[in-house]
């Protein structure tokens, strides 16, 4: 059982964790969400059509992220604490290399991540799933339960919002 679970975890954990991190900007909460989703994945993997498994996983992840956000709001209300938004930009060295070898400046990445954290749902989810994680429009639509054309329109709106945020900063 452990071997089968490990194989499943290796296939999906980074995808789940990356999405949760971009949505919550908190490492600890992202870890909690990932663990929760991995457990649910193991419990339900036999019930899901293999062709839709990725979309199913991301739908469950999104719901877990929403629950985590609600818990965070409740905690803030009870403990009156703020939530520190982590960004990777501060720990990335002054330059890093993308897949094509281009140098990506720390400032651009920092500004982009901050801008991404500021746009509302479902635009942020769509941008993360489509642009960062490379899911198809159909997969994104299934994960977020949105029609395909709506996904396209929302993606464009999300990118336009980011453009507005970044104007003058890059």
């Amino acid at each position: 059982m452990k071997k089968q679970f490990r194989k499943l975890a290796e296939e999906y954990q980074d995808r789940i964790y990356t999405y949760a991190w971009y949505m919550l900007h908190c490492r600890e909460e992202a870890e909690d969400v990932t663990q929760e989703v991995l457990v649910k994945l193991w419990q339900h993997v036999d019930e899901v059509d293999p062709g839709n498994l990725r979309s199913w996983v991301m739908r469950v992840t999104r719901n877990a992220v929403i629950d985590a956000s609600r818990r965070r709001r409740t905690r803030k209300a009870v403990f009156a604490d703020g939530v520190e938004i982590e960004t990777v930009a501060d720990v990335v060295t002054s330059s890093s290399r993308g897949a094509d070898g281009a140098v990506i400046s720390r400032e651009i990445r920092s500004a982009l991540e901050t801008a991404l954290a500021s746009i509302e749902e479902p635009y942020r989810s769509i941008v993360v799933l489509r642009e960062i994680q490379g899911m198809t429009y159909a997969e994104v639509g299934e994960a977020l339960e949105l029609p395909l054309n709506t996904v396209k329109v929302y993606l464009h709106r999300g990118r336009r919002m980011l453009r507005e945020e970044l104007r003058g900063k890059v």
Partner: peptide
């Protein structure tokens, strides 16, 4: 372009 270059993050081993 920059969005597509944003990184994936490795999930810490202890989570799984």
């Amino acid at each position: 372009h920059e969005l597509r270059e944003l990184p994936w993050y490795s999930c810490p081993e202890h989570v799984s």
